[in-house]
Design a binder for these strands. Structure first.
Ligand code: FES
Ligand code: FES
Lengths: 133, 133
DNA sequence: TTAACTGATACTAAAATAGTATCAGTTAAG
DNA sequence: CTTAACTGATACTATTTTAGTATCAGTTAA
């Protein structure tokens, strides 16, 4: 019943690191060293953040990354959505097909309710709120 | 971010079926037919329920299953724990080893908080409450 | 005796997860 | 104008989890 996978974990940690980096560019290498994250893995994790406009990158020597958004604008829910293809808990998908029991499934109704609560929590959670604690 | 896997799904549906079966024994075959659950899969799912004393079985012809407990005593949280080896969301285990970042991880603290809430919900949820809705 | 059952495993296939490797292009500095 | 330090983009592998199947043995009622 894992809510967070390594991709999300590493992304959050990298973004927290970038938040403390001010306006200068930090290389992926330096982040991976500081946070003990496998370098190639971290590069792959960061790629979608650049595409989505959460992180800005500068190529070449002396290049690197910096935040494109204020840490208060970077929601954990958005990160989770990036790294879990099937995000919703209540879709009840198995092998790409929806569970045959969906209409009228009592368990599903309850899972939907719980999901709304969990989603709301991750919606409130940002890189900024994580840094504050 | 799936909370419920097929094992738990099938177990809940089978237990709901058994609840409506009164005091007579229902065969796994009849449950699998009614609920559209693969027969062999269902047998494997039910095995631990028998061992844990949630379901009573009778061998031989005319044998089958019936509930060993009142539906109000069968908590969904217990079922989830049976079928997810690593139940806790916040343990942050990867490949059997705990995440190296656990002490002081801001994200983990928050996941622990959310987990408590989700667990409490599944604690309240029983076969009886599911049947009522 | 036999058909309808459960008990217990062992097996397979597909997907998700975690991690690695490689080749290409860009840029700043010497 | 070359080279070292970077990012961009994929393609690959290994492990674990999830879903589902197959099989053999034992039990019981008719
Ligand atoms: S809809 Fe799939 S378990 Fe209920
Ligand atoms: S402890 Fe593993 S992500 Fe925080």
């Amino acid at each position: 019943m894992k809510l967070i996978n390594k991709d999300t974990d590493y992304a959050v940690r990298a973004l927290m690191e970038l938040s403390s980096g001010g306006d200068s560019y930090l290389s992926v290498k330096s982040i991976s060293d500081k946070q003990n994250i496998p370098y190639q893995f971290l590069r792959r994790v960061i790629a979608p953040l650049i595409k989505k406009g959460i992180v800005k990158s500068k190529e070449g020597s002396e290049g690197g990354l910096k935040l494109a958004l204020n840490p208060a604008k970077i929601k954990v829910i958005d990160l989770i959505k990036i790294y879990h293809k099937e995000f919703k808990m209540s879709e009840c998908m198995f092998r790409g097909k929806p569970c045959c029991n969906r209409e009228g499934c009592a368990l599903r109704r309850e899972v939907i309710r719980i999901e709304r609560c969990v989603t709301a929590e991750f919606e409130k959670m940002t890189i900024k709120t994580l840094l504050q604690k």
